[in-house]
């Protein structure tokens, strides 16, 4: 067995580079340092040398934020493929693959539990499921999570990690932006705190709806956050984008994000913010 995984130069796709790779020893995607995998995991999937934040799954996120056990809800909602969509592959098959890869029926896990003793709802997006895209099921689950927070008078944290609305459900996906935002208006009326946590990446229709509507918008360092994707913008303006454009720190500087926080300080920061906000 090889000690190091061969670096395949032809495969630096977003996901491969961002997630903690398999193997005993791994290489940080940012500083290229060779790291002991177990140590990286213990360090909440943050590179101990350069602080690069590896992408993590929805359930890893929940485990990191909740005190102990949590209760998942709405886990059995599954897309009925309303458009019978097919591109190079049938959407139905993509759904099946996503399920096999993530143990979830869609790109969001909703849960209820406690964070530093405060009960709350957390809905975390799962990038491994069709790029964390938002279709009807994600829309319905975020809305139900907000409605549950309303019904039980709890704060809610939504963790975004998504390429945006899901094309394979067409305009139905688009309308989820309106549906979720309307639910957030009710939460706002009820004066229950909503913290939006943006992680790498948060783009498109997710950013242009709930991700930007937090009472507090919090971001992990170096996350890509934007409305249009960098490639689309480059095609529009026909120039290279400046270094750091659409990264968390850029959004902080431009007034769109309240706090950029290291994952190792995240739970503490969120819990403290909720204590300071709650009525």
């Amino acid at each position: 067995m090889a000690w190091f995984r061969r670096e395949d130069a032809s495969l630096p796709s977003g996901e491969q580079a961002s997630r903690v790779p398999e193997g005993l020893w791994i290489k940080c995607g940012a500083c290229k340092e060779i790291l002991y995998r177990k140590e990286v995991i213990q360090n909440l999937s943050v590179c101990s040398k350069c602080g690069f934040h590896f992408r993590i799954s929805a359930r890893e996120r929940l485990a990191m934020l909740f005190d102990g056990d949590w209760e998942e809800f709405d886990e059995s909602l599954v897309s009925a493929d309303p458009l019978r969509f097919r591109d190079t592959k049938a959407y139905a098959a993509r759904l099946k693959d996503g399920k096999a890869k993530t143990q979830s029926y869609d790109a969001l896990v909703s849960a209820i539990g406690a964070m530093e003793g405060q009960r709350l709802v957390i809905a975390a997006m799962e990038y491994g499921f069709i790029g964390g895209s938002m279709g009807v099921v994600v829309g319905e689950k975020v809305t139900r999570a907000i409605e549950r927070a309303l019904a039980e008078s709890l704060p809610i944290v939504v963790v975004s990690c998504s390429g945006g609305a899901r094309m394979m459900e067409g305009t139905l996906s688009l309308m989820q932006m309106a549906k979720i935002s309307a639910a957030l208006a009710r939460l706002d009326d009820a004066r229950l705190p909503f913290i939006s946590l943006m992680t790498d990446p948060t783009t498109g229709g997710v950013t242009a709806s709930y991700a930007m509507l937090g009472d507090l918008n919090v971001a992990e360092p170096g996350a890509l956050i934007g409305f249009a994707g960098p490639r689309v913008i480059e095609q529009t303006i026909r120039q290279k984008l400046p270094e750091g454009f659409q990264r968390s720190e850029f959004l902080l500087e431009h007034g769109m994000v309240d706090i950029v926080v290291d994952r190792r300080e995240l739970k503490k920061t969120l819990a403290r913010s909720l204590r300071l906000l709650r009525a």
């Binding site: 932006m177 935002s181 309307a182 208006a185 950013t207 242009a208 709930y210 991700a211 930007m212």
Partner: peptide, 10 residues
């Protein structure tokens, strides 16, 4: 851009 759109939706 995203914030402006999101705000209007809500």
């Amino acid at each position: 851009q995203a914030e402006a759109i999101a705000w209007n939706l809500r």
